[in-house]
Design a protein around this nucleic acid. Sequence first.
DNA 1: CAGCATCCAGCGAGATACTG
DNA 2: CAGTATCTCGCTGGATGCTG
Lengths: 133, 133
Amino acid sequence: MSRRNTGVSVRAVNAHACPVREVLDRVAGKWSVQILVAAARGPLRFTELERGIEGISRRMLTLTLRNLERDGLVTRTVHPTVPPKVEYELTAVAHELHETLRRLTDWAESNREYIAGARAAYDAEHRPELLDA
Amino acid sequence: MSRRNTGVSVRAVNAHACPVREVLDRVAGKWSVQILVAAARGPLRFTELERGIEGISRRMLTLTLRNLERDGLVTRTVHPTVPPKVEYELTAVAHELHETLRRLTDWAESNREYIAGARAAYDAEHRPELLDA
DNA sequence: CAGCATCCAGCGAGATACTG
DNA sequence: CAGTATCTCGCTGGATGCTG
């Protein structure tokens, strides 16, 4: 009866506590956003996604896609052919999310150097032992 | 030589791999965003933050504030009084981030029911065993 | 008041191997 | 092609107790 690691985040439960986290949990996984971004360009097959996302494992691609599908952010279309063909596509809601995320990454782009600088300064001040890594 | 759990996220290292994750890692922790939101209203003391954020532990508040400070998102001002008084305030960059995050939560608010519905439908279809939980 | 140190449970995710 | 199953490890974060 174990049912260990079904791929459903525990945070989905915590979400009741805080509407803010509710958003982020939908995007918090290591791969969710990259999948959203990759799939935003149109319907893609499983293998196309896999190749488009550097470093993702088959397992995590599957699990993350399932969760996105569960949240109504991607649609999964199975073409009953041989060999099988499955296409994933963002829903309208997910496209809105994608647009919002783009503003976030824009922010990151703009402030990446600022943050890197802040880190370096902080580490020099508070963590001198890290300087010879 | 253990140095276990210094509070510095492992994902900070992964960031090199993907600029997209780089943003989210700054916000991915369980409490970062809530702290950003709470602190956005003005300079707040440690205990005020603690009380303003439901359920946060002293440890996580400290760790998360340190990381935000390290990234140049909050300033930490120590008033050398007795008893000690420490105030945290968002930087200008963090205020921009906060504004961007607000759009994200707006999206969540708008689509919260849609997503809940999608989940319920998905679970009914694919996970009937969850219906009697 | 504002932390830091330590211990520990539980989840996220990588590696690997097997299937319709 | 498009998955699933199992094992494992390491990090995240909660609980608790101590200090300047």
